[in-house]
């Protein structure tokens, strides 16, 4: 931002000096540049901004999603959000998905990055394998994990039985299902955190470690005094990315549990779809959408402020 400010100032003075020679056509031509962002602006206005505003409007109505008309009901949908037990479950699930995957992904991602951050044979291959699932559609990964979790002949149950345990119906309970959704999401996307931390580690100059070693520091204190503080930007990136991604979780839930048993493993995103298309309460679903957007926006702003502040202090 500072750069572009100086840039403009320089160009402005350049404009002033050029005007006599370049003629009056010079300035309008510069202004014309702005039309280049009109296509992007038009798309965002039509398919993001307009739906967002329209969604707020619909959230004050009792629209069913297909009738031509609807009535204004004021804040009724929002009051319903606060008193609806199912929505409360769904909202808590969403937080569990977001926080659970975020914590696990940071621990595992950083661990993997540290283990990979030294020259060794097969390093590129290991990195590529661990990263691979990030690219596969979560719907496909979810489908395959569903196979693994089968009661009869399921790969996981076969291991459990081989170790002397009992077969489990993994997706039959709410708690179990929620935990499995967190686990599957974590395993699929841990490669992303790993890559972010690897890049962070590689950006730390080795001379810091050498200097600290000369001063007698070793192992744990090197990690705590040099690695952790200098990884601050990587922490910020990875945490924000995982939290926001977790708050939007949709695909894995759809294939692994379909939101069941009952509605007990839905996230806000999957529940919005159900409320709109299955329960035909479009107005109520719009209110959930507004709530989800508000929560994610506040989270992003607070997190960015907090993490950037820490980055400055570090």
């Amino acid at each position: 931002m500072v750069d572009s400010g100086i840039d403009t100032a320089v160009r402005r003075s350049a404009d002033a000096t050029y005007r006599p020679t370049a003629g009056p056509r010079h300035r309008p031509r510069q202004g014309l540049v702005n039309v280049l962002y009109l296509p992007a602006l038009a798309l965002l206005a039509m398919f993001t901004a307009y739906p967002l505003v329209n969604g707020v409007g619909l959230s004050f109505t009792d629209w069913d999603g297909y009738s031509p008309g609807h009535h204004l009901v004021g804040l009724e949908n929002y009051q319903r959000l606060l008193s609806d037990g199912t929505f409360r479950t769904v909202f808590v699930n969403t937080l569990v998905y977001a926080l659970g995957s975020t914590v696990l992904q940071q621990v595992l991602g950083l661990g993997l990055a540290l283990a990979l951050d030294r020259p060794m044979r097969g390093r590129a291959l290991l990195r590529a394998i661990i990263y691979l699932p990030v690219l596969v559609s979560p719907v496909i990964m979810g489908t395959i994990y569903y196979l693994l979790l089968q009661y009869d002949n399921g790969a996981l149950n076969d291991i459990v039985v081989a170790l002397g345990g009992e077969q489990q119906a993994w997706l039959s309970t709410t708690t179990g299902s929620v935990a499995i959704i967190v686990a599957v999401n974590t395993i699929q996307f841990v490669g992303l955190s790993m890559i972010i931390y690897l890049a962070g580690l590689q950006s730390i100059p080795t001379m810091y470690y050498e200097a600290a070693r000369l001063d007698g520091a070793s192992g744990w204190s090197l990690f705590r005094r040099i690695t952790v503080p200098l990884l601050q930007p990587a922490f910020a990136t990875s945490i924000v990315l995982n939290l926001i991604g977790g708050m939007k979780l949709f695909d894995v839930i759809k294939v692994l549990t379909g939101g069941g048993p009952g509605y007990s493993t839905n996230s806000v995103s999957t529940f919005i779809g159900l409320t709109y298309f299955n329960a035909q309460s479009a107005g109520y679903a719009a209110a959930m959408g507004v709530a989800l957007f508000a929560v994610i926006m506040i989270m992003t702003l607070v997190l960015n402020a907090a993490l950037n502040k820490r980055r400055l202090e570090a």
Partner: peptide, 28 residues
Amino acid sequence: RRGTWVNRVVMLLMLGSIMVPPLSVLVP
């Protein structure tokens, strides 16, 4: 290239729309 205040607002709006989760605007 052109850091006028209008362009800064446009940029901010564009980046801000990253925060809109797709499903939150499903109905409209």
